[in-house]
Design a protein around this nucleic acid. Structure first.
Length: 462
RNA sequence: GGCUGGAUGGCAGAGUGGCCAUGCAGUGGACUGCAACUCCACGUACGCCGGUUCGAUUCCGACUCCAGCCUCCA
């Protein structure tokens, strides 16, 4: 029985899909004018794990994650760079895809782009005007009429009257109500755009997601996700637009991932305190970054620091030590308590920290079994690898993980290791220790286990 | 100010009305030529003040502090 926390009701609910066995999921993706940062990676990994688990639990998932490839910031950045909007967004879409691949994030089933759905956006906007929920203003913009929608801001629990008091009035706007938001923005001279019944212009941000999600998944779908910072106004506006346009309930369950913090502040573009995925990947293996993001619950805030990333490396080292030397291609141990506990953890609102704790227990069991019962140890190792795979972890070979990132000559290490073995056979301990010290200077740690000497890179010195 | 969420051992981070989180670090032991790895054992905790209860870190209330949203933002 899968339970998921629904932001709308503020409680965990037993998940009941609209159609048995199927899940239709939409997540707000990125605006592509810059490199993705760790905050973005948090969202990408959180929903990647959710989708992986839903599939492992037997659901047929349709995962849609959009790309916003037209908006004010994109236009401004392209102008600054002296390039077209298309050149800018294509480049960063490509970079983002590279980052996602590095982090082991599976591609969504559909990845609609705003510029590919202008017709649907215009159609929805027209529909909203026809139903009295939107109006074309005299400045060429089209606005959604917030007072026309009965339960505005129900998701974020904001009081519409207080929003009225707090809203700021901008020059040049022609809104009937300060809370109204743009569905269509008239293009200024030299700005890109598309023809529409209201003149040349471009879509507002919120309507893009309403149009793309309902086009891909229908007027009502199971789950809508995104960062917690999108709850208001973006998701509240989506609800207003979509329900006003279709007359149906928009989404059954809302999921929001927590922020990544740097020095107690949210990592964000606007605060300029972000670390991009690619700069972090230059210092840490992608799996370590992924572990860092999975080791906390998806709804909680996490603090980014190099120290925490290093912890991720240490933790993964323990897993890979357990897997090391075992044939994980054998059939996984079936019906174990660990597997059951793993699923219980994941079924409780995707409790990845608890699930990892279970995997650590399983790793200990593997280490216990490895000498006395190698076959059982291998079967449990195969289980560990399979369950780790649901979190997108532990798919590398133990050897490659443990040796990753070391700038050493493997042939040299092997020859030193052979020399040390010979010295040990001759009980020349001084020589054996001298060679081990020599290896240590190369950041290579020697491990003698069951008569076999192996090596790994020591990351703690870096 | 309004609305949300949080405060757990040296660090990271779950969870629960009474019993073990887990990882790293630390301590003692086993293994080892010595180490490393591994195993066994151990220590240290639930912001503050009240209340409910046989018993609260867990429930309720007040307080303090922190963060997110209220403007673009995963």
């Amino acid at each position: 029985m899968l339970k998921i926390y629904n932001t709308l009701t503020q409680q965990k609910e037993v998940f009941v899909p609209l159609e048995p066995g199927k899940v239709r999921l939409y997540v707000c993706g990125l605006t592509t004018y810059d490199f993705a940062h760790i905050g973005h990676a948090r969202m990408l990994v959180a929903f990647d794990v959710i989708v992986r688990y839903l599939r492992a639990a037997g659901y047929a998932v349709t995962y849609v994650r959009n790309i916003t490839d037209i908006d004010d910031k994109i236009i401004r950045r392209a102008a600054e760079n002296g390039e077209s909007v298309g050149e800018l967004t294509e480049r960063f879409i490509r970079f983002t895809h590279e980052d996602e691949a590095a982090l082991g994030i599976q591609r969504p089933d559909l990845e609609p782009r705003a510029t590919g759905h202008i017709a649907e956006i215009i159609a929805m906007t027209s529909l909203l005007i026809g139903r009295g929920h939107a109006y074309a203003a005299d400045n060429g913009d089209v606005y959604f009429s917030v007072p026309s929608f009965a339960h505005y801001a129900r998701l974020s629990r904001k009081n519409p009257d207080e929003l009225l008091a707090g809203a700021r009035i901008e020059v040049g706007e022609s809104k009937r109500d300060v809370r109204d938001f743009a569905l269509w923005k008239a293009a200024k001279p030299e700005e890109p755009g598309w023809p529409s019944p209201w003149g040349f212009g471009r879509p507002g941000w919120h309507i893009e997601c309403s149009a793309m999600s309902t086009t891909c998944l229908g007027h009502t779908f199971d789950i809508h996700g995104g960062g917690s910072d999108l709850m208001f106004p973006h998701h509240d506006n989506e609800i207003a637009q979509s329900e006003a346009a279709t007359g149906h309930r928009f989404v059954n369950l809302w999921m929001h991932n927590g922020p990544v913090r740097v020095n107690d502040e949210k990592m964000s573009k606007s605060l300029n305190n972000f670390f991009t995925v690619r700069e972090v990947l230059q210092k840490y293996p992608a799996e370590v970054v992924r572990y860092f993001l999975v080791a906390s619950h998806y709804r909680s805030a996490i603090s980014y620091s190099e120290e925490t990333l290093q912890h991720g490396y240490d933790a993964l080292e323990r897993f890979y030590h357990a897997l090391k030397g075992l044939d994980v291609s054998v059939a996984a141990a079936a019906g174990t308590a660990w597997e059951q506990r793993f699923h219980e953890a994941m079924q409780d609102d995707f409790g990845t920290p608890e699930a990892l704790a279970v995997l650590f227990d399983l790793a200990r069991e593997i280490n216990r079994l490895r000498t006395a019962a190698p076959a059982a140890a291998a079967a449990h190792a195969a289980l560990l690898r399979r369950l780790g795979g649901i979190l997108g972890l532990l798919q590398a070979s133990a050897e490659s993980f443990l040796r990753e990132g070391g700038a050493v000559d493997a042939a040299l290490v092997e020859s030193l290791l052979a020399a040390r073995l010979a010295a040990r056979a001759a009980k020349d301990w001084a020589e054996a220790d001298r060679i081990r010290a020599q290896l240590k200077a190369l950041h290579v740690v020697v491990e003698d286990r069951q008569g076999v000497s192996s090596w790994r890179i020591d990351r703690s010195l870096e």
